[in-house]
Design a protein around this nucleic acid. Structure first.
Lengths: 227, 227
DNA sequence: CTGGGATTGGAATGTCCAGTCCAATTTGAT
DNA sequence: ATCAAATTGGACTGGACATTCCAATCCCAG
């Protein structure tokens, strides 16, 4: 028999799928705003307009719900960046991606952290399974960046010494740290600095034809306006 | 009259100071392991061997205690890095600092996040005052790095275009993001990559006499062994 | 149209937990 | 020694919260 993942259910009709989705959506939104421990199942029940029975019909317990929220947020983050991630193969594309990330933060007035990063931070020490799920989300994200950088190198835009995997990890780390500082300071400045600095480093690997003239990546990072 | 900070108390005898410190120490340790919401005041009471009256005699409420824990952790982190931060004025010193940061993570088997970063992430959206306190901790940290880089530039080791404030922020962001990825993956690799990459970028600003011969900072980051 | 699974309602349970209170004991300055 | 302030003991409260449970209703395959 084709048993599905761990806590998966019986058949699940269209109506059931809709209810389940409503619960996950509501939970994801609340958890993004208030964190996992700041979100009670009563809150979720109210926001999704469901009863206890429904919650526990679709999710074994709070951990199972949070697990679904992690999957949801990973898809949301990667999905939202899809237009950029799928063409991440030039400095211009990299900078466009950076702009998109910064724009999102600005739209949120620097409230909330990275949907994945915040969950990772809150759950890493409390539940090993959830920690791994968040880590897997990070991996998927880094992989997308890596593929883009790899394409840049393949096409001769980046020098051979540029290691796509290393650079992708470094870019993701700068993003996460930048978002955290940005959240704490309620300013996009740290995120912009972190990303610009890292992208400038990537630019230092450009081949002459990749970007003619300008001495590869140095001193272009400027302090952005206070936001 | 010289009124002290917000929730500060009456005189406070030596014995009282000791009890207060015992509470903060215990709370800091528990919160580092389990997070703020994962740590009940009963846990703190037990760990510090104090009664409710004592807790509430020294702290108005849980928020006040957490505030004290933030201050404690900021001092602990900066204090622990003091030997490095106070001589952060050469690439060698920068790398020694990097090694120290990585060593701490390795000692902890990549368990727990940055004592400041984790608090910032957990509390940023739940309490504005605590958010600002964490942000202030980040600022103190970045400032120390900035001063070191500034000294490097003053002494002609870094070129004039190197902006100490920008680099310090970028380094701190890489550190925070690196630690988060390292915590999620339970491996020091992402942290090492993030820091090495960023320090390599800093090295790209070295003047010829700062580091002779080698083309400034490129392609030296290697993937470390799995930890 | 009908039986059984899918779905839903909502009250109830038991635990955890922040915060309160009153009274006892200790301490330090005079 | 003496008294007021500082410190401590520990029971108690009221609410929040995850989870359970017993039915009731809905829906579709046969």
């Amino acid at each position: 028999m084709t048993v599905l993942r761990s806590a998966d259910h019986a058949p699940l009709t269209p109506k059931g799928r809709a209810t389940r989705a409503r619960i996950v959506d509501a939970a994801a939104a609340l958890i993004f705003e208030r964190g996992v421990s700041g979100t009670s199942l009563d809150d979720v029940k109210a926001a999704a307009s469901v009863s206890s029975s429904q919650l526990y019909h679709y999710f074994a317990d709070k951990v199972a719900l949070v697990s679904a929220v992690i999957a949801h947020q990973v898809d949301a983050v990667l999905g939202g960046q899809e237009p950029y991630l799928s063409h991440l193969d030039s400095m211009a594309a990299l900078r466009a991606w950076r702009d998109a990330v910064v724009r999102v933060r600005r739209t949120l007035n620097c409230h909330g952290g990275c949907p994945i990063g915040s969950l990772a931070s809150e759950l890493a020490e409390s539940d090993n399974t959830l920690r791994r799920e968040a880590a897997a989300g990070f991996s998927r994200w880094a992989e997308r960046i890596r593929v883009g950088l790899h394409a840049m190198r393949e096409r001769g835009e980046l020098r051979a010494e540029a290691d796509p995997a290393v650079l992708a990890t470094a870019i993701l780390a700068s993003t996460q740290g930048g978002i955290l500082l940005s959240q704490a300071h309620r300013s996009t400045a740290p995120l912009e600095i972190a990303l610009d600095t890292m992208l400038d480093y990537v630019a230092s690997f450009l081949t002459p034809r990749g970007q003619k003239g300008r001495r590869a990546g140095t001193g272009r990072v400027r302090v952005p306006n206070r936001a």
